[in-house]
Design a protein around this nucleic acid. Structure first.
Lengths: 142, 142
DNA sequence: ATGTATGCAAAACATTTGCACCTGG
DNA sequence: CCAGGTGCAAATGTTTTGCATACAT
């Protein structure tokens, strides 16, 4: 149960935190911006401020419950941290986000860091392209 | 000469544009934020607005003279586009930025896109870590 | 009760835009 | 001369913060 996850992180079990966790778990989209989550809360009738959404997400990130990714265009997306590392490929047209994990790339990253005398702390790897699924809007664009 | 580069891009050869090009060419740092460039202009006594710096950089990016990278923390860095693709590894402590190009990673990216049914348009690959150079401040941090 | 959390509004950034004035070709 | 460029200030979009109030433990 998630109440214990919060307590473990030293966070009080509050309604906003529970609701935000629930949305991240049950929304159809694993990847959501703070604004997405905020709107989703409003839609379900909750009266939770956007500032709280940001505060809670930041705390969750610190606690390792959530991970944040900086996408192009200066906005972040959040997702539940399942503990399994992966990177992302994003469709420029429909916004679809898919996850991948490529061991070859992960290995090369370590190798590159070593070659440059760095100890690797993190990386951001995002592929941008166009998915060719039937409902992707780019097919209609002139 | 760079005047022709500008003309080729359909841009008038103006003082701000020349100055910004010069800074990008001759500054010790290949990677600069808009603010960095703006400050550098002020230091050399130029009276050029920050808005102009952004406008010019955006035009240069469109013209392929400059490339922009979205770094962590929601700010962009710009660099002269030499035509040679590369990615970046950044020191979290001293901000040092080094460039690399790894053919294995580039290949895997194409492969991943294919596997997911995407046509790849671009990618952002940034490694974050700590460089172990003698003057890097992290060595002093307690 | 008491230290945390929250809501709201205001602040902080990075970046963009509207507009009157200036300037390169 | 005149389209395009620039400075400045105001607007944007995203995220953070100050503060008085409300809540979990």
């Amino acid at each position: 149960m998630e109440r214990s996850e919060l307590r473990k992180a030293g966070l009080k079990v509050t309604l906003p935190r529970m609701r935000i966790l629930t949305i991240l778990e049950s929304s159809g989209h694993r990847h959501m911006s703070a604004e997405d989550i905020y709107k989703s809360l409003l839609d379900s009738g909750e009266d939770i401020g956007l500032a709280t959404v940001y505060r809670v997400l930041t705390q969750f990130e610190t606690a390792g419950l959530v991970s944040r990714h900086n996408f192009e265009g200066g906005h972040s997306v959040f997702e539940l941290d399942t503990g399994v590392h992966h990177d992302h490929i994003v469709c420029n047209d429909c916004g679809r986000i898919e996850e991948f994990m490529n061991p070859v790339i992960e290995n090369q990253q370590e190798k590159i860091a070593k070659e440059h005398g760095f100890s690797l702390a993190a990386h951001s790897m995002i592929l941008y392209g166009r998915c060719l699924t039937p409902d992707c809007p780019h097919l209609d664009k002139k």
